[in-house]
């Protein structure tokens, strides 16, 4: 069983909500980034979303844009990110999803990427700007190497469109709670319950909700009708302030409380 599938299965069995944490690989350099990632995992992440930096991150707000620029300035490329996955995999069984934009993956080559990511110990790929219509080219190689294709579903996605997309998905589905870019927000979406109910109607995959969650209380509220919450920008900021483990524990307490 794929590590993602197993993790969500175990969470469900124990009646817990999952915590998916995003960190940009190589921010501010590979060594510090690796230390932050290890600290986050050890503090209780259930799934690691490892951001592959891109020069033009059109779905990201300022926090992750700046993290990407720092990582690129330090020379981080996809090869280095895959090596980082390999090092983490030696010590941890946590599922790892590579999170990024189409061009660096396309430039590496989808087939080579799938092979190398699987060899390094990654479990899935989430490509922000590769909607379902353009994803076949990537899904083939992912399937061949046992990697999950994790799609994004937005508040603007109709149930019919979600159904078509999720028919080809594995692992989990990432539901974007708000129309907008990544980043911490003061208030959560008000129509979340309704959207998640509709989404449950078209898929049996676990649902992780993200975009805007930054603290334990928000995590608890957002997780009410979901299987997991994703925390990105807030974790990136916490890493900068050397309190990543602290934030993970707070989020964990919020979800478990």
């Amino acid at each position: 069983m794929n590590r993602l599938t197993k993790t969500f299965h175990d969470l469900k069995a124990s009646g817990r909500k999952g915590l998916v944490g995003y960190l940009t690989a190589g921010d501010p350099d590979l060594a510090v980034s690796e230390a932050n990632i290890r600290a986050a995992i050890e503090a209780g992440l259930d799934v690691l979303e490892l951001g592959v930096p891109f020069s033009d991150p059109t779905a990201d707000g300022p926090t992750i844009q700046e993290a990407s620029m720092r990582a690129l300035a330090a020379g981080t490329n996809l090869g280095a990110v895959l090596a980082l996955v390999g090092r983490i995999r030696r010590d941890h069984a946590i599922p790892i999803v590579l999170f990024g934009y189409a061009n660096p993956f396309f430039s590496y080559g989808f087939a080579a990427l799938a092979a190398d990511a699987a060899a390094a110990g990654a479990d899935g790929l989430l490509v922000v700007d590769l909607p379902f219509e353009e994803s076949a080219e990537l899904r083939g190689p992912l399937a061949k190497h046992g990697l999950c294709y994790v799609p994004l579903i937005a508040p603007t996605t109709s149930p019919a469109r979600a159904a078509a997309t999720l028919a080809e998905a594995q692992g989990f589905v990432y539901y974007i709670m708000v129309t907008g870019v990544t980043g911490a927000r003061a208030a959560l979406a008000t129509d979340l319950t309704e959207h998640l109910r509709a989404l449950r109607g078209v898929t049996t995959l676990p649902i992780a909700v993200g975009f805007g969650v930054s603290n334990g209380a928000q995590a608890k509220a957002a997780s009410q009708h979901a299987d997991a919450v994703v925390v990105g920008s807030a974790l990136v900021r916490a890493a900068q302030e050397q309190r990543v483990a602290e934030l993970v524990r707070e989020l964990r307490a919020g979800l478990d409380g």
């Binding site: 059109t58 922000v128 909607p131 353009e134 508040p155 603007t156 109709s158 974007i176 129309t179």
Partner: peptide, 20 residues
């Protein structure tokens, strides 16, 4: 129908924009 001119073009955007 997907906006491809030969092997170029298409729609490479976030899901939020796709329905629009």
């Amino acid at each position: 129908a997907g906006g491809h001119f030969g092997s170029f073009g298409g729609r490479y955007v976030g899901e939020t924009l796709m329905p629009a």
